[in-house]
Amino acid sequence: MDILKPAVAGTLESCDAAVTVEPRPAGSLPLLELVVESSEGRFAAKVGVAARAALAELGVTRAKVTVRDRSALDCTIRARVLAACLRGAEPACGAEPVAKAAAPWEALK
């Protein structure tokens, strides 16, 4: 899945995470850049693992992804990364708020 425009999902409330995805200009390395900032530092590594797994589910290989974690559980990290990517996968022009990329439910375990 290609990230075509910047998008955000989630909040900075406790137990949530705010995830930002941005397109990566052609030629910039690494292709996938993941930044994790966590209020619970002892879980920062796990948050990174959960975020990468969610990106892999959608086949997102080129993007800059920022996860600002507020002690979210892994399933919340996953949901917010998926939502941000699906939102960012929509073309920038003429996108209506409700017309986001449909989630590929059959591919999500």
């Binding site: 619970e40 530092g41 002892r42 879980f43 920062a44 796990k46 559980l73």
Partner: peptide
């Protein structure tokens, strides 16, 4: 099972 194991301080 809910949190996973935290890295040590």
């Amino acid at each position: 099972s809910i949190t996973g194991d935290a890295d040590p301080v």
